[in-house]
Computed example of a mutant assay.
Amino acid sequence: MAICIYCSQNKTLTREHIMPAFVYTYQDSISNSKSIGWREKAQKVLQGEAVIKDVCDHCNNVVLGTLDAHAKSALEKAGAFTPNFNKSTVDFEYDFNQYARWLLKVAFNSSRASGKHLGVFDQYKDLILDKNKNYSSFIITGGLLKPYKLTKQQKIDHGQSLFADSSGYVNPFFSRVSWAQNLPNDISVKQIVIGALVFHVVSFSPNMSRVRKRELQKEYLKMCKGMAILNKGSSRTKLSQLPLTFVDSMGPHMLREEVKPHMDKLLTSC
């Protein structure tokens, strides 16, 4: 028995996935090996599904499980689960309350697992549990990664495993959670990638004025070109291609000094 991180009650704790199990299930179905990923706390690449054991059964399988089910449905309708995504736009359909809470849940889970932004996303626990409806301290944005053109040699070496089309373009299914860098002070941004779909949870510092939030929102949108805001009053948002490929989106984190040697070793062993 221990204290559940969400409801703060003393209960038996269960393992909560950082990314939902349905993401790993699809990723494993199109791969010859189990999912692998960089683990921030362990400071190494590990195989298997990333989980954290600090959530009670009710919060995990009832409350958060409902959010996972909605997210899975919305992502399936958008065509996210494909080995080579080739759409230039998507009319993304969602229930804002459920999808925003799901993204906040993933961001909060990732922060606890990685030790990053620990003081940022815990403020949204009550909102994630649907105990309040205050959406004023964050925005949600989305976009699409564009296909990456393989060189002739890359197509020979990796085209089949990356499901390249006849012209050598790839937009493979990967999932990851990271933090956006080089953004204005007073905002924290978690980037959640499901295949070619990219979502940002943009959290503003507490007690910020509406005027300052609008200024930072404009500055953020200028820096993150192409990201579209998912509005609270809407159930559909058009997501368009960003000026980024999956390689671009992974670069800032995979090429960090502490990560690169592990990735080099992994790639040379493939």
Rank of each mutant, 00 (worst) to 15 (best):
L145S: 04
S8C: 11
K260V: 09
Q9L: 15
W102I: 07
F246V: 06
L266G: 02
F121V: 03
A180S: 11
M19R: 04
A2R: 01
F246L: 10
L67F: 06
I30M: 05
T82E: 08
I3H: 04
Y135A: 05
G115N: 03
K190S: 15
M208A: 06
R236K: 15
N86A: 12
D248S: 07
S73G: 13
H262I: 05
R112A: 14
S29F: 06
F96M: 10
K116C: 11
G142P: 02
N10F: 09
D28E: 14
G195A: 05
T66K: 15
Q241T: 08
N10C: 12
D57Q: 06
M227T: 06
K232E: 07
T12V: 14
H17R: 05
K41L: 15
D165Y: 01
L103V: 06
A78D: 09
I187W: 05
A80N: 06
R236N: 15
G168V: 01
D122R: 00
L239H: 02
D130A: 15
N109A: 14
S136G: 09
D157V: 10
N84S: 04
D264T: 06
C224I: 03
C59V: 03
A196C: 09
V259E: 00
M254Y: 02
R39A: 14
G251F: 03
K11W: 01
G65V: 10
A74F: 04
M250D: 11
A113D: 09
K213F: 12
T141Q: 08
V62N: 13
Y6T: 09
K152C: 10
